[in-house]
Design a binder for these strands. Structure first.
Lengths: 249, 249
DNA sequence: GAAAAATTTAATGTCCGACATTATAGTTTA
DNA sequence: TAAACTATAATGTCGGACATTAAATTTTTC
């Protein structure tokens, strides 16, 4: 019986870069140590972290402390944990990272407030994307908007495609903080929105505008891109208002 | 020996509003339950939460789970814990609140990125402030800018006054999320900035523009206010660049 | 021999108990 | 009255035990 020795991704290979913590370290120090390790090992989204027990042993602390730290990250959406499947990165952890939130139950009234914060960030991201994007990013954006149009005209659920399109814009803007912030804000928004309203397709009417937006971005017409995003956001806001009123919120 | 019966703040009186959690609840559910209790009891910043053991008993869960949840809040800066002094609220917990957590060590390179995210938020907040602010907020803004000018011309440290002025703008915009976001972003920025550069007075040259900004806001000239904020942010960015280059970062 | 079913296994999820640490509250002493 | 001491009640930490579950492995079945 020959051993197949697939290094099975990241189990033993990863994680010998953790050094014992001095006594009295806080759970935040644990997270600092972990993010150092993540950067050192080059772990990406989806990669697996060492088991809690191993982290604890390497850091010279108890498993409870590791769990408190990891649960913090879990509540911030940075990792997902899944029993035997282990703990995996759900967001990029690196030096240039601001880790956003965790939303307490927001009320329907704050939907518009959340959207109002998102608006200027989306506009600026689009403007920067138009100014900064590389050729390969141009191709990606074009592909994504084509996908969106195709999925939508086929009558299928286009939200995933929409999300991917906007994500490509955020990436193209050259500043990962925009994408992170907007993603978190949108998650907060969806969480509040879905509770009373279910999951209707929001922004249906804006689909045609996405083609113009993509064209403006790949052509480098920053102001036009910004204007279109503003219009899209306004239309979504109007839609939210309409739905809220129709349900007497 | 007569009993003095001071209800000693919030020990027994608070916390019978927690109902047992269904099995399989996550640590996030614990936080939801706690924020519900906090809102119900009207707890404010500085108030004390029930002891972990009592929270655990009332929710019908183990203390470890409560600790994981509270440590999440601690890492987000929502509570502070201090041994016998107990766990106290460090930030307002209510509906309509997005709690930003927790910044990983940022590197100097990301100073500009952080600033780039702050920029559109500040601009939009100023625009909204010009459109929405009430009479009393107009007075406050005028007072704050006068204070800023006075402190600055006296040669004193004007950063606190500057902070208060901008905070009055954020408040006047009518959407608390702007103020929260910007504050957190600025804290992240300062944390990074101060490490290599100390605490030089950043934005000195923009002081005179603050008067124009305040005038535009109280007069309701939204676009002018937005433009001025943009210029201020650009000047700060230029200053940061200059300092970084002068130190070969 | 390949697919399906059953078993094993390795991780997280949960609780409990014990003890250390410490800031406050209470008590004694000077 | 003030200072020093003691008691106490909370958090901080660890270890152990066990449940739960999804992946990996083995066995069975066709």
């Amino acid at each position: 019986m020959e051993t197949r020795t697939p290094p099975q991704e990241t189990a033993e290979s990863v994680g010998n870069s953790l050094k014992p913590l001095p006594p009295g370290s806080s759970s935040r120090d644990v997270l600092d140590a972990l993010s150092g390790m993540i950067e050192l090992e080059g772990l990406k989204v989806g990669d697996r972290l060492p088991p809690e027990i191993e982290i604890a042993n390497q850091l010279g602390i108890g498993r409870a402390k590791v769990r408190e730290a990891l649960t913090s990250w879990q509540n911030m959406g940075i990792v997902v944990r899944n029993k035997k499947a282990g703990t995996r990165l759900a967001a990029e952890v690196s030096a240039n990272t601001i880790h956003l939130p965790f939303t307490l139950k927001l009320e329907a009234e704050s939907l518009l407030r959340t959207h109002a914060v998102r608006r200027p960030l989306e506009i600026e991201a689009a403007r920067l994307a138009a100014l900064n994007c590389s050729d390969s990013q141009r191709l990606l954006i074009s592909a994504r908007v084509a996908e969106l149009i195709a999925v939508h005209s086929a009558g299928e659920d286009w939200r995933q495609a929409d999300y991917r399109f906007h994500a490509s814009l955020h990436e193209a803007c050259g500043n990962p903080l925009f994408g992170q912030l907007i993603r978190q804000i949108q998650e907060a928004f969806n969480e509040v929105y879905e509770a009373p309203f279910g999951q209707p397709h929001l922004g249906q009417a804006t689909i045609p505008m996405h083609t113009q937006l993509a064209e403006a971005v790949v052509a480098g017409r920053a102001e036009e891109a910004a204007r279109i995003v503003g219009e899209i956001m306004d239309m979504v806001e109007a839609e939210v208002l309409e739905i809220m009123e129709s349900q007497n919120v």
